[in-house]
Design a protein around this nucleic acid. Structure first.
Lengths: 254, 254
DNA sequence: CGACCCTTTGAGGGCCGTCAAAGGGGGTGG
DNA sequence: CCACCCCCTTTGACGGCCCTCAAAGGGTCG
């Protein structure tokens, strides 16, 4: 099941001016001056292997990151080991802001697949805002957008029944993936999450998550086998999860 | 029980230069130029009675707000009426950012007590960022800080047992109130929430929330009667809720 | 005094968690 | 090339936490 892996993404050559992520229509176009400012802000890139931590819980990260390729997730753990996934990270997502303004990091970020990251030193953030208010505005946009995702997950964990939770998270992950070209035609060809991840995201136990996934699959709503996810009945999943979303407009990319 | 109400706060006279919230040491001091910029951004003030909506769900608000006085909360509802409270709002909190970047508002904000708000027209936000990058940075700070609160609530709803949830939310509300002078010495003299609010915040039913509150009260951890909340054993509540937090540093105030 | 809202308590059941163990695929080492 | 091991998935059994239903208690307001 772990055998298939996505085609290795085009590496980031370190030049933001030729960054191919910016070409995608999921993201807002940038002026040359803005690209230059981002290049100045950026200190380099970093590779993190699947399963390793990008940001450690309870330790202040000296860097902020943009996920350039791969899948990751943000999480918190309680002292007895219970883990809650807060939200998922896909290419273009910005991370590390929350602890800019706190005493210490309060969450961790783990790479679900091999990941490539753009690295931004935390201590250049204010200078970046100052030089390019428009990009500061863009970062605020990204922060607000991430909060919306956490809001949705909170409603899921707090108020949805098991089948509703699973329906919602499958649809959410598919749509996020489709938006950045990691899925198409109802199919995520390299779905990187195990059932434990889904359980940790929606607030169910692993066993009950499995039973619920099987139930929805028997109903023909989706297919999750190996690491291929297929959304067979998007409308039914929407209905079941009470989860309707308009297509997202292009977002900024730092 | 609804009889006692807090002393009416000093009204906002409309001049940010003399705003008394800024004097509190919970907030970062501002330069005169910054206060002026905020005054230009601000279009007026608004009063909302307890129980009324500040921001309506699914409708785009033309304004952003800072809560000047009172208690409020942000929430989402599912189509069958189930409601989840996302986070609580106290004086100094900024609201409305999330839908700046979305198609429509995806959450509502309700006043739990009579509230006074500073009103900021949404369409002046970019100009505000442009003129005062430092205050744009401050808004990002506020957004990131609010996301941290939602993160915590998600862990609560997703992974904590009933008693843990209740312990955590009581402690959280007390600390938030204490920080802005609405509580002291383990006592919140005008606690504005009903058990239904607590239930909606932690993801439990009203009945089970009541039973859990009574259980913790019998154990002597807290007292909640009428609209007075007393935290009797903060250390025990921390331990039970696995919820430890360092005192928060001063935050920006817009 | 009655209506209404919120709180409180009890009864019963179902959803979901925990425990346990088998199945299956891939990787590793012999 | 095969055997073994490990990780993940799957299924069953059982129990308990929490939800729903129901109704009484208490305070406030008209």
């Amino acid at each position: 099941m772990q055998a298939s892996s996505p085609p290795t993404p085009a590496g980031c050559d370190g030049a933001c001016a030729t960054c191919d992520l910016h070409e995608r229509d999921a993201f807002l176009p940038l002026s040359d001056a803005e690209r230059d400012a981002i290049a100045v802000f950026r200190s380099g890139s970093r590779e993190v292997a699947a399963g390793r931590l990008i940001i450690e819980e309870h330790r202040r990260s000296p860097n902020l990151y943009t996920l350039y390729s791969g899948w990751a997730f943000r999480f918190k753990t309680l002292s007895d080991g219970r883990r809650q996934i807060l939200n998922f990270l896909l290419p273009g997502d910005f991370m590390g802001l929350q602890d800019e303004f706190a005493e210490g990091t309060t969450y961790g970020v783990e790479a679900a697949t091999d990941c490539t990251l753009c690295v931004f030193p935390r201590d250049r953030l204010w200078d970046f805002f100052n030089r390019q208010p428009k990009l500061g505005y863009a970062i605020t946009w990204l922060a607000a957008n991430e909060e919306k995702a956490v809001d949705d997950n909170l409603v899921t964990a707090g108020r949805r029944a098991a089948a509703e939770r699973v329906a919602m998270v499958l649809l959410h992950l598919y749509r996020r993936a489709e938006r950045v070209g990691l899925a198409a035609d109802g199919r995520v060809p390299f779905f990187p999450f195990q059932q434990q991840h889904i359980a940790d995201a929606v607030g169910l136990s692993l066993v009950h998550t499995n039973k619920t996934l099987r139930k929805l699959q028997r109903l023909g709503l989706h297919r999750l086998e190996g690491n291929v996810l297929e959304i067979l009945e998007p409308h039914a999943l929407e209905q079941l999860g009470d989860y309707f979303e308009r297509p997202q407009r292009p977002t900024p990319l730092i």
